[in-house]
Amino acid sequence: RYRTTFTSYQLEELERAFQKTHYPDVFTREELAMRLDLTEARVQVWFQNRRAKWRK
């Protein structure tokens, strides 16, 4: 599977959502995914990776 490349707008929005909550529920993820034209799975994985980065 190829690596997803996020646009700067998508990253800004994902980071903004991350500032609000590190653990968005499925509705929040679905809403973000639709708004950013991504799949909910991509959003979920982004948050997993972002939390890992945050913990370091």
Rank of each mutant, 00 (worst) to 15 (best):
K53T: 11
V43C: 03
E40N: 09
H22I: 13
A33Y: 03
T5K: 05
R51G: 03
R42N: 15
T21V: 09
M34A: 11
D37N: 14
K20P: 00
T4P: 09
V45C: 13
Q10A: 03
R50E: 12
R35W: 04
E12A: 06
T21Q: 12
K20C: 13
R55W: 05
P24A: 04
D37F: 07
L38I: 13
L36P: 01
R1N: 15
R50D: 01
Q19E: 10
L38W: 02
A17N: 04
R55E: 10
T7A: 05
R29L: 12
R55M: 10
T5C: 11
N49I: 03
W54K: 10
K53Y: 11
E30Y: 14
Q19V: 09
W54H: 09
F18W: 05
Q44R: 06
Q10C: 00
Y9E: 12
K56H: 02
L32I: 10
L36F: 04
T21K: 14
E40P: 10
Y23D: 15
E40W: 05
E40C: 07
T39H: 08
A33F: 00
T28H: 11
T4L: 14
R42E: 15
Q10H: 04
E40V: 08
E30K: 09
T5E: 13
Q44N: 15
H22K: 05
R1K: 15
R42S: 14
P24Y: 02
M34W: 07
T4Y: 04
W54E: 15
V26Y: 15
T39P: 12
Q48H: 12
H22Q: 14
D37W: 04
P24Q: 01
A52D: 13
F27W: 03
E15F: 01
L32W: 01
K20V: 11
R35Y: 06
R35H: 05
L11F: 05
K20R: 09
Q10N: 02
R3Q: 13
E13D: 04
E13F: 03
R1G: 11
Y2A: 15
T5S: 12
A33G: 10
Y2V: 12
Q10F: 02
L36Y: 04
F6L: 14
R16G: 06
R3Y: 09
E13S: 06
Q10Y: 02
T28L: 11
Y2W: 09
R42K: 08
S8Y: 04
T39V: 12
D25N: 11
Y2D: 15
R16Y: 15
T39M: 05
A33I: 05
A17W: 04
V43S: 01
E12M: 06
L36I: 12
L38Y: 04
V26M: 07
T28N: 09
F6A: 05
R29S: 08
Y9M: 07
Q48V: 14
R55D: 12
A52F: 08
S8P: 13
P24N: 02
R29K: 07
R16D: 03
P24K: 00
M34L: 14
Y9H: 11
T7N: 10
E13A: 12
R55Q: 07
F18I: 02
Y2C: 04
F6D: 06
R55H: 01
L11Y: 04
W46S: 00
N49F: 05
T21L: 07
K20S: 12
L38N: 00
F6S: 04
L36D: 00
A41G: 13
T21S: 07
T7L: 04
Y2L: 14
M34S: 14
A17E: 14
M34D: 12
K56S: 15
P24R: 01
T4H: 07
A52C: 06
T7C: 06
A17Y: 11
Q10G: 01
R55V: 11
T39I: 05
T4M: 11
E15A: 02
F6V: 08
T28Q: 10
E40G: 07
F6G: 04
W54F: 13
Q44H: 11
S8E: 12
F47H: 01
F27R: 14
R29I: 09
F27S: 15
L32F: 02
T21C: 13
F47I: 01
A41C: 10
T4S: 07
R1C: 08
R3M: 15
V43K: 01
F27K: 13
Q44Y: 15
E31D: 08
T5D: 15
E31A: 12
E40A: 07
E15V: 02
L38R: 01
R1W: 04
R50P: 02
D37E: 06
E15Q: 04
A41R: 05
R35Q: 04
A33T: 06
R50Q: 10
A41V: 10
Q19W: 11
F18V: 00
Q19P: 02
Q19A: 15
K53A: 14
D25W: 00
R55T: 10
Y9Q: 15
F27C: 12
N49E: 15
S8G: 13
N49S: 15
R51E: 08
L36R: 01
L38T: 14
M34Y: 07
D37M: 05
E31T: 14
T4G: 06
D25M: 05
R16H: 11
R51C: 07
T5G: 10
F47K: 00
Q19M: 07
F47V: 01
R3A: 02
R35A: 05
F27M: 14
W54V: 03
F6W: 04
R35I: 03
V43D: 00
T21I: 06
N49T: 14
V26N: 14
K20N: 05
T39S: 07
D37P: 02
V45S: 15
E12S: 09
S8M: 08
T28S: 14
N49Q: 11
L11D: 15
R50V: 01
L38H: 02
R16A: 09
A33K: 10
Q10L: 01
R50M: 07
T5Q: 09
F27T: 14
W46K: 00
Q44L: 12
D37S: 14
R29A: 12
W54T: 13
E31I: 06
Q48M: 09
R16S: 13
W46G: 02
Q48A: 10
A52K: 08
V26P: 11
